[in-house]
Nucleic acid binder design. Sequence first.
DNA 1: GGAATTTCTTGAATCGATCAAGTCTCCACG
DNA 2: CGTGGAGACTTGATCGATTCAAGAAATTCC
Lengths: 152, 152
Amino acid sequence: MPGSDVLDPTALLRAAGLKVTRGRVAALVALGEHSHSSAEQLHTHIAAGGVPMTLQAVYLSLQVLTEHGVLRRIEPAGSAARYELRVGDNHHHLVCTGCSRVVDVDCMVGEAPCLLPADAHGFSVQETELTFWGVCPDCAAQAATTREEGAA
Amino acid sequence: MPGSDVLDPTALLRAAGLKVTRGRVAALVALGEHSHSSAEQLHTHIAAGGVPMTLQAVYLSLQVLTEHGVLRRIEPAGSAARYELRVGDNHHHLVCTGCSRVVDVDCMVGEAPCLLPADAHGFSVQETELTFWGVCPDCAAQAATTREEGAA
DNA sequence: GGAATTTCTTGAATCGATCAAGTCTCCACG
DNA sequence: CGTGGAGACTTGATCGATTCAAGAAATTCC
């Protein structure tokens, strides 16, 4: 029964004109289960899933998939690159300054009203990237605990 | 006559409670003349200005100045970190996908109307970062030339 | 099922940035 | 003006993330 999972990795690869290999399928599956993971995290998840694959192969697959538009690569300042399945666009990211966790944030105001520069300095603008920085609940709790201990 | 240049480096350092050293002054002057430069570019500029300083010292100064809020550090995906004097806030950046050149872009819609996430997933949002990606005039011209040559 | 192409493995190398220890500079005090 | 101590700078090594290169294995088309 196809379509049981998020999306059929094989179909995705075929649609992108790419060979269907164990590594790429594993990368897509892992990313479907753990979105916004780094290459190393994916490598770990893939290994845990019982698929033997080197870290370099993960990098290679991610690079190819990104180049073919199957994945999107995000590179928050101060942490390794993270990847996500290119599902519906039009969302942005919220990054934790503590643990670098990334979550999706829907674009509030529908499309791109205020998301074009006033003066583009002659540039032809192709893309707008919106990133929110904050503290995730876990890190906030941890910080509170640390403060209490420090005060005690 | 103070204030002749963009801003007096010495005053900036004193205001931040930092020692006034040759290296820091040189870094500030270089940044004033070449905003959005990387550490290595600044190192080159400083050396060209006749101030002997190692690259590591540049990194160190930039780090300290950033931590003390004198500078802002921006890290566009795919290029080295860049720095700018923290003048009036409320502007964003436009990065060239070809040469990684960075230019300032004023925040159009005044403050932050659409710049808060709809659902923060429990995060306490501290900052919003808006980056535009495009092709600068130079790179566009170069691309056009290359295409012509390819076609000829 | 077999051959050609592409991918994956193994190992090294790169780039940007940081760390560590010793020396020197800046600045306050005498 | 001279000296002492904290902090900054130099030198050299190290690190993390990522990429490159060459040979071995897998995938696809026929």
